[in-house]
Design a protein around this nucleic acid. Structure first.
Lengths: 153, 153
DNA sequence: TTGATTGCAAAGTTTTTGCACGTCG
DNA sequence: CGACGTGCAAAAACTTTGCAATCAA
């Protein structure tokens, strides 16, 4: 995973100017491997920069995504960003429906999936949703949570 | 895959009123297994209902998704809907990025996925994207292909 | 210095909500 | 009839764009 310094290095290497705001962004993503929405990033940055504008956050997130510094995934509840897992190490994620934290799954089903050769595979998504250890108490209150795997009907 | 009649049946069985518009929606999805965006649905419906409003389409799509009549997938370019394959047996899909048609994958990676017991799994998604046989040539020459909407009828 | 970066304002998209009228059952 | 569905308008949420002032290199 890219470190804060590596992120800055990549950006500077591509001719981008390293503003204070971009340093903070690099730090945020360099020290945090969760997926963050644009809004969450904005709120975090807003603590430090009083006059921060939403469009600058968007612009920087897009730039960083174009430089492959950030990885962007479309979840059900919107687009989120995370520092790119460099070294081409492919994996998937478990995502907590409560706190949105992600946990890696090293297993990739694609190797085992039997795709007809008529179908030219481009990409795939494998995402497991549920509740992480910290968030499981919270869901008990609701009462109507399925405790185990949803494995078929 | 649910037929037009089955869709109507489910909706009526849940106490929903079967309006003319909902009949048409049931027909659209019952006879079409491609993924359609809300906009595409709106445009299709608009041919028949001159004063149609966008919000009604959204409301009905949401209702149908909540009844599990429709399946909703978030693509990079937005949310799309398709009739649900709730024929009792759990499976996943390959989805053509060009024509949006879907092909079943019987294999479910969830059985093989090693989830730590600290993580309480609620649901999962496994989707393979690519190009189906019919669309592989088309991708070279800047295909002017649209998802096949039924011609007004 | 100078061109990239930012904040601001405004507009473009997509989706949701409140309300009054219309209609299914 | 009465409750649900619809159209209309407006708002909300999210994202992008143009422009002038600012700032990194």
């Amino acid at each position: 995973m890219l470190s804060t310094e590596q992120i800055i290095e990549v950006m500077a290497g591509q001719g981008l100017r390293i503003t204070d705001q971009r340093k903070t962004l690099a730090k945020l993503f360099g020290e945090n491997s969760d997926f963050l929405s644009a809004k969450e990033v904005y709120e975090y940055m807003g603590k430090k920069y009083s006059g921060l504008s939403f469009d600058t956050v968007y612009r920087n997130l897009r730039v960083m995504e174009e430089l492959d510094v950030l990885e962007q995934i479309v979840f059900e509840d919107g687009v989120k960003f995370k520092v790119n897992c460099s070294e081409g190490h492919h994996h998937h994620h478990m995502i907590c429906l409560q706190c949105q934290k992600t946990y890696p799954i090293t297993f990739c089903p694609m190797n085992l999936t039997d795709t007809p050769e008529q179908f030219q595979v481009v990409k795939h998504k494998f995402e497991v949703f549920g509740y992480c250890q910290d968030c499981q108490q919270v869901t008990e209150d609701d009462g109507l949570v399925m405790p185990t795997l949803m494995n078929g009907e």
